[in-house]
Write a protein that binds this DNA or RNA. Sequence first.
RNA 1: GGGCCCGUAGCUCAGCCCGGUAGAGCAGGCGGCUCUUAACCGCAAGAUCAGGGGUUCGAAUCCCCUCGGGCCCGCCA
Length: 493
Amino acid sequence: MAEEESRLIAERRRKLGLVRASGRSAYPYRFGDVVATGTVAAAARALEPGADDVGQTFSVAGRLGAIRQHGKSAFLDLNDRDGSIQLFARVDELGEAGYQSMLDELDPGDIVGAVGHPVRTKRGEPSLRVKHIELLAKALRPPPEKWHGLQDEEARIRRRHVDLFASSESRARFRARSLLTAGLRTFLTEAGFLEVETGVLSPVASGAAARPFVTRSHYLDDELRLRVALELQLKRLLVGGLERVFELGPVFRNEDLDSTHTPEFTMMECYWAYADYLDMRGLVERLYGRLAEVAAAALPDVPAAQAAAEVFRAPFDVVDYVETLERRMGVDHLLEKPIEELRTLARATGAPITGDAPAAKCFDKLFDRHVEPTLIRPTFVMDYPTVTSPLAKAHRSRPGRIERFELFYRGFELGNAYSELNDPEEQRRRFLEQAGDDPDTNFAYDEEFVEALEHGMPPAAGLGIGVDRMAMALTGATSIKDVVLFPPARRRT
RNA sequence: GGGCCCGUAGCUCAGCCCGGUAGAGCAGGCGGCUCUUAACCGCAAGAUCAGGGGUUCGAAUCCCCUCGGGCCCGCCA
């Protein structure tokens, strides 16, 4: 297989040699005044089939797709960020030598620039009639098959650069993701939130029950951990008086990959002083309404994106955590159940619940199995049991509950928010209840954070959104790998 | 971590059940064609069948191990 590959590469190298031998640069520095292919297509579409417009001259540049040689004329597909345009090259325009060297030197996959005027072929295809074409960068490796592209999931991840130029769907999806994060930033910035960047490395990784990655600092001569959440640092910024902050960036959890989890993912958290979780619910409703529109506009051909734009319209459904869970399970007084009974109920769902499993875990499993799959439309689930979160404030009127909601859509979570706990004594107690012996598997106790609260943190609402999952939901992706450019892959052997 | 499945030419796939020594399309080479668009027509070429071991007269095919990947479960939110 290596021989075959090197044969193809050698052939392309030979063509590169032809360019150099003729005294032209094989890798020139620039190609002037390039317009998007869509500009040429629009100009050409205004023409009658068979007509051209010699009054206009355009330069385009991009990667060659199929080359259809036709004797003394040829059609070349040129793809750029905007789409594609057909190049129509003829011997009578390029000259015998120019036409021949074009065909001798160029391959599908090459980066080329072309100058010409708009033309519409007899079949009606908007095209550029080529007066000049030149190689801007030789592709020494052949592109994948023009019709199917890269199908192998592993190849698509390991060679994402190839996946992107070979698959317009992949390109469109990642472009949509970029527009979504831009939309998220714009929305929050316009709402008065300040974007910040906090540290990734610290001795203690807290804010979530997750196993951290551990690394080592030569300078400190000590172990450091990669953050598993943004929460504690951002709350310290509230103590510092920044009042409305958000961060959008990677967090790291040392766990396996599956269709909705990856060890390195993008989290957005925002904190809003003097607001509570109901204020935050309103903000989330407006935010998702806006983002769903962004995705739908970016992906007109993706049904899931269009469907999301239809359904993410305020007001979203609102249900109570305990009531919904009790109804689905057919039980009453769930919060008063002794822990042993909770474990039995959780075990009945098939979840592996050990004899010392905490109530939080039981609730998580019960909700996960009985309720989550039923939440199809955008739905806020309100007022979780206190044990499920050590960082949220007790509900102002409902004993045993905290002021927390999560947003669900099509069975998975798209956001998590609460009225943030700002009582340092209470925080210290809850931390100690949750923190086990092992800081690498349990919710880590962070004394610096508690000391920060002792300086006084304003009442605040906080929100966390898993950006990858948000992008999945709004772009119709079924695997998180379809919205992460470079998911972790094992070392190539 | 457990179970199931997959790995054949640069790319997309067939062949594997039922063992007889690998086949197509695209891309590439040569030739033809001045409106094609998955262009078309002709000719020639291209493969340690993921890697290693075993069974067998004979292995892409059956068995075992290793590597890589996918799906489900677990872990995780």
